[in-house]
Design a binder for these strands. Structure first.
Length: 374
DNA sequence: TCTGGGGTCCTAGGACCC
DNA sequence: TCTGGGGTCCTAGGACCC
């Protein structure tokens, strides 16, 4: 059978920082946006296990974290460094298996063929040791008969452990877990499941299939399968291409100044154009998202007639979309904007990009050279 | 008490075509 | 004067992930 070995880096951003600043080790520390003296609008991105003992959590608003006390070491995020570190981890995994797949900046999985779990387990420990010894980074490892189950095992293994779910153990392992522990079940689905009396995965078996499907849609099938100890047999995922590239920013104070909004969009597009060229993609769809002070969000998108890698046309489209969002009715007063975001979508590889030719040939199957823009 | 920035995937309705 | 059954494409919104 094929096992999935799933790696989840522990407190990844913070571990990256500790790698280059060893004095951080063992101290309560967080990687977080600027607290601005308790007035910041960001969140905590990563908290050390020592900081967690004091109540710090990732995704916690910095204002709330600020109130917990300032003796914690507060580190501003350095995403380029975390991305570079992530590439080092992936390079190491790809040496062990070319089928290694990355799922986020700090998660990845590789396949392992073998009847009994012991081989996969030995490989998982070897990977864990190699990443710790060569890169100085801790990670948790989960092993299971599907990527989803291996991921759930890695959650259970945190921090720094290794957990194996064998095919015969699936129902027992998942049965007592809260539904929220299943990837894909978020706050809304948790609430909807609660409304039909399902709090743990095992509770699904007490609810008739159609009622469960009415409550949570297609997730119902996945949850019932898990509760019965079954899982989807899926082919190992292919290497995937990005589908969109975007940028967003939250203002330190809400604004309805059209000049400031347009300036921000122009800055986004300059950055995005560089990324498109560097990575070798053209786009066709422009999406503008605006979040207002009350957190309500609107989005408008428009597709160009052809793919392009230049963002000049996108700026015109984006400003039109901005007007449509902000002034649906000219008689309406302007609503202050909290966050603005711009995404370029419907990406396709662009031959004029600076991507090196070997990776380009691999991604296009090598069978045909994509045409340049018309 | 507020809630970042980067993404993916799904649904649903309407336009349009055969 | 009353209209089906496919299909694809586009757009808006929302859930979810790290």
């Amino acid at each position: 059978m094929r096992w999935a070995i799933y790696l989840d880096m522990d407190a990844f951003y913070l571990s990256c920082e500790a790698r280059r600043r060893p004095e951080i080790r063992g101290r309560p520390a967080v990687v977080a946006h600027d607290p601005a003296g308790g007035k910041g609008r960001g969140v905590v991105l990563s908290a050390s296990y020592e900081a967690r003992k004091h109540g710090f959590r990732s995704a916690m608003p910095v204002r709330e974290a600020w109130r917990l006390g300032q003796e914690v070491l507060w580190i501003p995020p350095d995403f380029p460094y975390y991305e570079a570190t992530s590439r080092e981890v992936m390079a190491l995994l790809r040496q062990r298996s070319p089928a290694a797949r990355q799922f986020s900046i700090d998660e990845a999985a590789l396949p392992w063929d073998g009847e009994d779990a012991s081989g996969a387990e030995a490989e998982g420990r070897a990977i864990q040791d190699e990443i710790r010894n060569r890169l100085g980074l801790p990670c948790s490892v989960g092993i299971g008969p599907s990527i989803l189950l291996a991921k759930m095992a890695s959650d259970r293994a945190k921090p720094g452990g290794l957990v194996v779910i064998s095919p015969g153990d699936v129902a027992e392992f998942v049965g007592s877990l809260p539904v929220r522990a299943v990837p894909g079940v978020g706050a809304v689905t948790e609430r909807d499941l609660g409304a039909v009396g399902v709090r743990r995965v095992g509770d699904c078996l007490a609810v008739p299939g159609p009622a469960l499907r009415r409550a949570v849609g297609p997730l119902a099938g996945l949850l019932r399968d898990l509760a019965r100890g079954r899982w989807e047999e899926e082919p190992w995922p292919e290497e995937s291409e990005p589908k969109s590239l975007g940028a967003m920013s939250t203002f330190s104070e809400d604004t309805s100044d059209p000049e400031e909004l347009t300036r921000t969009l122009r800055r986004f597009l300059d950055d995005l154009e560089r990324t498109l060229k560097h990575q070798g993609y053209a786009y066709r769809t422009v999406t503008l998202r605006v979040r207002f002070a009350d957190f309500h969000a609107l989005q408008r998108s428009r597709s160009l007639p052809h793919h392009t890698h230049e963002t000049r046309s996108a700026l015109g489209v984006a400003t039109t979309l901005l007007r449509e969002i902000l002034h649906p009715d000219p008689a309406h007063p302007k609503r202050p904007v909290r966050t603005v975001g711009l995404t370029l979508g419907d990406l396709k590889p662009w031959a004029g990009g600076q991507k090196d030719l070997s990776s380009f040939a691999r991604e296009t199957d090598g069978s045909q050279a994509p045409l340049p823009d018309p």
